[in-house]
Write a protein that binds this DNA or RNA. Structure first.
Lengths: 243, 243
DNA sequence: CGGGCCCTTGACGTTAGTCAAAGAGCGTGG
DNA sequence: CCACGCTCTTTGACTAACGTCAAGGGCCCG
């Protein structure tokens, strides 16, 4: 049963968040209006404040959403992978994109015109409701992220990121970092140097990161660290005692 | 033309964000199903993770939305005033509230049952679309807030808050702080002590805060500060030289 | 006048950013 | 196969930003 490329892509797209509660026969026609895009690492998908002409579904690869403040500082708002949506909600209502989107790996996207999205929503109240739900979910993610930044230290956020990669709640676990460390740092709102130092500080908690691979010997211990049981970083007792 | 209390409240509610693009005759019946609530300062409107039974519109006063992390640290996600909505999107889709809501002043709220909201949305595609748009707008506010926290220093955020209070883009301006300083600090993600010190550091930029009143002698100068033209805080040259 | 509350101030510690330099991996071309 | 340059990452020393703790100060209200 060799499905066509188009069908394969449609299947991936169907799994996306927005369509989670939409009947398949309503979502699929919309998805089929989409065009396949291949984008190279480093290329821009869209720019902040550009009018939202399309919605994109990530078929493969990673995209970062970032904003550049007036003083030129970049901050990464989120990083999206397979089955996730870009410009989701903006395209629905014909607004401008609130962020830039840049490919951080080679990328395959499904591009769906905003007009088609809006048309589908008008024709179909259920779809509109699904979009609303997706938007609400995204909202929650953002609220949580704000809480994260405000009430956790950099080290805690980094540990939280690692825990999020684990597919288990307890015991040990071994995972690949999904993208390079500079990007992880930027996402978590710290500098690469800090990320590197924190990884080292997590060693006594059973965390070992080398290259793009992390081993967590006890997810519970990591969780305890995140929840604030965190002895201050001691400079007077360096890890490397032979100096 | 002495309108009834109910009518007055409905008029306030109609100005709320969600109804901005809804025809009056669609929004008003929904609003009229609402009940008036009076809440004292310090009381809780709803709790984080509580199932979202109602949507609230602020008629008067201030509510803070906060989250408490597992380690007990509070972070204020936003502060809402007149004509703003609480639990907006959650109630639309029957989820749980992502935050606590606490009255930070005496408060008058209009409470609309989630069932009524959902019923209205089913009956009325246009209303559903309005909610979607409101949710998208809120999304953008959150994204901006994340950018703010990640790429601006505490001092810059505080200055930004002050500028936001000004009703003008240039020239001088005099405003009242809308709530007490501890709450402002918490909203901006800094400690009250830091807020206090930053206010002092802003004096050379023409900002003067005393009690709950602020005078900005030049909004442009303040803007320049926000955008990063910020000499480092000098400890060796205290403002108060007579010590 | 005394107590409580909110805010300010000072001294000090911790956290994270900056700058500079050195490693580590990796593809290319000789 | 190795040297080269490239990029990503790590490390160290230093600094700035912010939090913590503790002690006042002003203000309101009984």
């Amino acid at each position: 049963m060799a499905a066509s490329i188009l069908e394969l892509n449609s299947e991936i797209a169907l799994k996306a968040d927005v369509f989670r509660d939409s009947p398949r026969d309503q979502a699929l026609p919309l998805i089929r209006t989409g065009k396949l895009l291949k984008i190279d690492r480093g290329d821009i998908v869209f720019l902040q404040d550009e009018s939202a002409h399309s919605l994109f579904i990530v078929l493969d690869g990673w995209v970062k959403l970032n904003r550049v403040s007036s003083s030129g500082v970049e901050s990464v708002v989120s990083i999206l992978g397979r089955e996730e949506l870009l410009g989701m909600v903006c395209a629905m209502t014909g607004e401008v994109y609130p962020t830039n989107a840049e490919a951080v790996s080679d990328l395959r996207l499904l591009q769906i015109e905003a007009d088609a999205v809006q048309q589908a929503m008008r024709d179909n109240a259920k779809l509109c409701h699904s979009f609303l739900e997706a938007s609400v979910r995204r909202n929650k993610v953002l609220v949580k992220q704000i809480e994260q930044i405000k009430s956790h230290s950099g080290a805690q956020r980094i540990a939280g990121f690692l825990r999020g990669l684990c597919r288990v709640d307890c015991g040990s676990c071994s995972v690949d970092l999904p993208f390079d460390k500079a990007l992880i740092a930027s996402w978590l709102g710290v500098k690469p140097e800090t990320l590197s130092r924190v990884f080292k500080r997590l060693q006594p908690y059973g965390v070992d990161v080398s290259k793009n691979h992390a081993t967590i010997s006890s997810v519970e211990r990591l969780t305890r660290f995140i929840e604030g049981d965190m002895p201050p970083a001691r400079r007077d007792a360096p890890l490397n005692t032979q100096g």
